[in-house]
Design a protein around this nucleic acid. Sequence first.
DNA 1: GGGATTTTGGACTGGCAAGTCCAAACACGC
DNA 2: GCGTGTTTGGACTTGCCAGTCCAAAATCCC
Lengths: 198, 198
Amino acid sequence: MTFTAKGLATRQRIIEGAAAHLRADAPGDVTLDDIRRATRTSKSQIFHYFPGGKEELFLEVARYESNQVIEDQQPYLGALDSWEAWELWRQAVVARYRAQGPRCPLASVLDQVGGVPGAAEVATVLLHKWQAHIHRGIVAMQARGEIRPSLDAAQTASAFVAGIQGGVTILRTTAQTAHLESTLALLLAHLRSPEPGD
Amino acid sequence: MTFTAKGLATRQRIIEGAAAHLRADAPGDVTLDDIRRATRTSKSQIFHYFPGGKEELFLEVARYESNQVIEDQQPYLGALDSWEAWELWRQAVVARYRAQGPRCPLASVLDQVGGVPGAAEVATVLLHKWQAHIHRGIVAMQARGEIRPSLDAAQTASAFVAGIQGGVTILRTTAQTAHLESTLALLLAHLRSPEPGD
DNA sequence: GGGATTTTGGACTGGCAAGTCCAAACACGC
DNA sequence: GCGTGTTTGGACTTGCCAGTCCAAAATCCC
């Protein structure tokens, strides 16, 4: 069961085609026939390249979209070492989710796979990476004296991730970015707020 | 198509039985036969009391669970007019979600109905109520001089809702309350922080 | 008590979608 | 070219589940 170069290309085409299809409006319940149609492939190809069937394919798509989430915040997220970088990052996050609207590619695909353990793992890994970037940024800012040392970097990074996550969740159901923006504004203000008594 | 008292009791039993079933571990895809079994009713009863079928029934369950979410935070959420009340409220929220673990009753049922407009509305109404309570609490605290007047009450209430929402979402996939707790701790600290320059 | 109405049981239907299977086309090394 | 392994098409099977239907039992109201 080894794949040739052509085979691998087809496999990739299926993943990306499925991802594109899941990004479309209100995908609802997506069937393998939908994917088949969207990617101009046949049933046997899907099972040939993803022996685990639907679950395996969708997990692959979830990994793909999960990488996109981080990618879309670069280069800012990777180098939060100045107030300017933080500001650009905030704008990138808001812009990305504003453009995306209520359709969240990653959430859509995770909805499809449901509660299998692999899905939780993809989400957990993403959250960790995200939080680690923010944490590094806060520590860097503290090192250069831009953020008060008494601020709990771990707690703050955790709150950032939770706030963004919540803002995006609310965006998905209300189609409003207001909550996402409020959270980011408040958290950035919190970062900037001086030592009490300064 | 009018219902007698007995009929209404059956109808209610179906709603509550379905809610209980949806709270069980990993409900996955819930079928009407599951509900039928869990409530000791027959197919015809379900369609008799919920002519709209699965969608109507599950929306009813969602409304029921949505009320629970607010109820479980009372009486604190309705009277956030002292630091003690805020603290008790925070504890109630954390305790509730810690007890609930990764299974969120409301999220489970909303997962089942999917993207129908009614589902979004139930969620939106809940968020609004929740946010209104918090907003009232902040304004009340400002009125008695416990919170600096320069704090943007609307933005902060919005961030609270987003942060809690995100914390709960993360709890659902990681089974950890850490993010929820970080967010609440940070936001409460933000409420208490003094006027810059005081 | 009796006729009208509501409530209940559960068999049945129809459609849909995941996964299987076989055979045909194709690629690649020799 | 030839044989072996890979890739592709698509018909078919299988099982599931929402929703329908009819008839029996219970209830209500006069």
